[in-house]
């Protein structure tokens, strides 16, 4: 139903311990964010693309398509940083003045924008590595181990489960509305959408009470406790992570 989620359950790195994948992702992300050179983000992007496509076996086509998802935000924001509008034409690196108003680029802004562009892409590839290789339930387990408040992980378990239940309901309702010519005009769109939202919200109330009853029937007494699947811990993976990160950190420190 959600592509990224489906791949998380059907990739070749699925059985790797989620903590190892999380450590790798987070460390690489921090290295990427603290990079002072454009080379680091490019290396990060290459490593993650390799991990996702070659190691995890996600089709390259899918990876490329996913990398394009944040592109609209990225382009708008990067262009916003690069371009300035001013009544003072001085100091521009590249500019066009029309009727006393100057639209153009200041050189330092351009550098910031280019760095930012690459750094964001590098970081996004890290995010995808984690998201595409690790089932959400296991990420929640890692958070639990990190002593995130229990109420947060419990809510995450419930939210994750019911996202899919409600998505199914929403799709069904929407299909029914479309078949009865909902959403044809602005007015009917508003009406259809508000009906859909309140129908869903109604479900939220009913289902939550049903779920509570069902859990109570299984002796629920305030805390949701579950067993989690044990994944083998691999020393080799940790060594490999260290092997990747140390050169990148050195690169960041030495390239000034």
């Amino acid at each position: 139903m959600i592509d990224i989620d489906s791949y998380a359950y059907s990739n070749n790195l699925k059985t790797v311990h989620p903590a190892e994948k999380s450590v790798f992702t987070m460390m690489t992300m921090v290295v990427c964010l603290t990079a002072t050179t454009v080379i680091t983000p490019l290396i990060v992007l290459a490593i993650m693309a390799g991990g996702i496509v070659i190691k995890a076996g996600i089709p390259a086509r899918v990876f490329v398509k996913l990398m394009l998802v944040p592109l609209s935000f990225l382009l708008i924001s990067v262009l916003t940083i690069a371009f300035s509008v001013s009544t003072n034409p001085a100091g521009f690196w590249l500019a066009q003045t029309i009727h006393g108003l100057t639209v153009g680029i200041h050189y330092p802004d351009l550098i910031t924008a280019v760095h930012l562009f690459l750094r964001s892409l590098g970081a996004v590839s890290c995010l995808y590595f984690l998201a595409l290789t690790t089932p959400m339930t296991e990420i929640i387990t890692v958070l639990h181990k990190l002593k995130v408040p229990v109420i947060i992980t419990e809510l995450m378990v419930l939210i994750y489960r019911f996202i899919f239940v409600f998505m199914e309901t929403a799709t069904t309702i929407r299909r029914a509305q479309l078949s009865r010519s909902g959403y044809v005009s602005m007015k009917s769109s508003f009406r259809s959408l508000s009906r859909l939202s309140s129908a869903l919200l109604g479900k939220v109330f009913v289902k939550s009470q049903e779920l509570y009853n069902a859990l109570a029937a299984r002796c629920y007494s305030g805390e949701i406790r579950v067993l989690t699947k044990k994944r083998p811990v691999s020393l080799r993976n940790y060594l490999m992570i260290t092997g990747f990160e140390i050169p990148l950190i050195l690169l960041n420190l030495l390239w000034r």
Binding site: P135, V157, A214, R218, C219, V226
Partner: peptide, 15 residues
């Protein structure tokens, strides 16, 4: 209540 089959089944006996 859980997206993991294993977690869901273990809930009752753990309680």
């Amino acid at each position: 209540f859980s997206a993991s089959v294993w977690q869901d089944i273990s809930f009752g006996p753990l309680n």
